[in-house]
Design a protein around this nucleic acid. Structure first.
Lengths: 229, 229
DNA sequence: TACTCATTGACTGACCGTCGGTCAGTAATA
DNA sequence: TATTACTGACCGACGGTCAGTCAATGAGTA
């Protein structure tokens, strides 16, 4: 194998890029170190020159993903011209619409991530998401309390609760999405159940925030049905 | 190796018993099929005569654990002499006290289960717990609505939300429990944060239930501090 | 300025132990 | 005799190790 020398940072990023692509395609467990170095055209030892273990690479990758997520939300949260309710609404709506716009990719990714063997990667992503995004959400909550539209005693501690509520709803969606009922009538029944779950989550969130009923829309009926067409 | 023939059910239960003991001691990934058959004094092939894979054994084991958990809660939930508030209080208090009574074992088990390599097992246990126990909790919620002490629009869909809220609090506890601050002052700070998290979860739960503030106690200050002495 | 030469660190690839899983065959039971 | 609980040698793949290669860098010297 020809020897190609690169700078540390460039090589490091290359490992993360290739690993991310392969992990998204095949999952963490199903991607061997052999697969990664083969895709890069380098030798095994080089991998362990940059990472102490395969798990170490996963941690580094998720750290980078979390950084990117925070960076994409930060401007909106800091925008002084928006009120808290608008920010919270965008919080849900923009990510929801982005996912729907990339529906095919998201479905494929979900199918991979929700396999048993990828539980570690899925859990790490979820946890990093909550940990890093909670402070941003807490800012929105505090703003809402100051504006008098929310009533939350512990914004800092309530933010992660709300985010986990959101992930709980996402999990319920994925359950149906990955095991779609065969018959038409069964699908309608599942959609009705899902709709009730969405509403239950919305009511829960409103009450935690001290916001009036039906003031929060995490997902519209149209957005929900759009996933199943 | 001497050949010992047993009946199917007996051997099957023996596999589950030995696997549970080893998984609790060393974790799922760190327990090899070799470890299990060695502890039983049987050959490799026998394992695959009873289970299609190692993952299959884990599923069977967790199924059995969930059955036992439901069976231990069922009588209390069905007791017609108890009101809903009493049932919900026992729901938390009895499990909390049982865990504290078996503190040493629970700490050891937690240290194992919360290792990265055991994420699959931990997640499966949590998920099976929510799925199987949610119907029981939903019964309590419906009873509470009938008694006029709770105000929940969707009891069936709210039950899993409350259970996940409980697990979210448990995770926060474990975070501190497994990474105890070195200095005395740091520990006090962590305990204060933890206390706020407990209160935030209690307030969230009360509001979801439509119950008055401070009517729910998931964990007393004494119970919380008891974990750190 | 041109030439050494030691040091650094990116890089190679053969090798290792362990793992989950297979399968052809054996012995006990009904 | 048919069934089935059971054995154990064997397999390929995996994560990880390590002794050694080689290109670039820069300080010391003529």
């Amino acid at each position: 194998m020809p020897r190609v020398v690169k700078e540390y940072d460039e090589r490091y990023a290359e490992f993360l890029d290739v690993a991310q692509r392969l992990f998204y395609q095949k999952g963490y467990d199903q991607t061997s170190v052999q697969d990664i170095i083969q895709a890069m055209g380098v030798a095994k030892g080089l991998f362990y020159h940059y990472f102490r273990s395969k798990a170490d690479l996963l941690d580094a990758l998720i750290e980078r993903m979390a950084d990117q997520a925070v960076a994409s939300l930060q401007p909106m949260v800091n925008d002084p011209t928006l009120d808290a309710q608008t920010k919270l609404h965008r919080f849900f709506d923009s990510t929801q619409n982005w996912k729907l716009a990339n529906k095919a990719f998201m479905l494929e990714l979900t199918r991979v991530l929700y396999r048993d063997e990828n539980t570690l990667m899925r859990t790490k992503i979820a946890r990093a998401g909550v940990e890093r995004i909670a402070p941003l959400l807490a800012d929105i909550l505090r703003q809402g309390v100051a504006e008098g539209v929310y009533d939350v005693e512990h914004p800092e501690e309530s933010a992660p609760i709300l985010l986990e509520l959101g992930q709980s709803l996402a999990n319920a969606m994925v359950d149906v999405l990955l095991n779609p009922p065969a018959a038409e009538t069964d699908l309608e029944a599942s959609l009705a159940t899902l709709e009730r779950q969405v509403r239950a989550h919305e009511r829960a969130m409103e009450r935690i925030l001290g916001a009036p009923p039906c003031s929060i829309v995490m997902m519209t009926t149209e957005q929900l049905r759009a996933w199943f067409t």
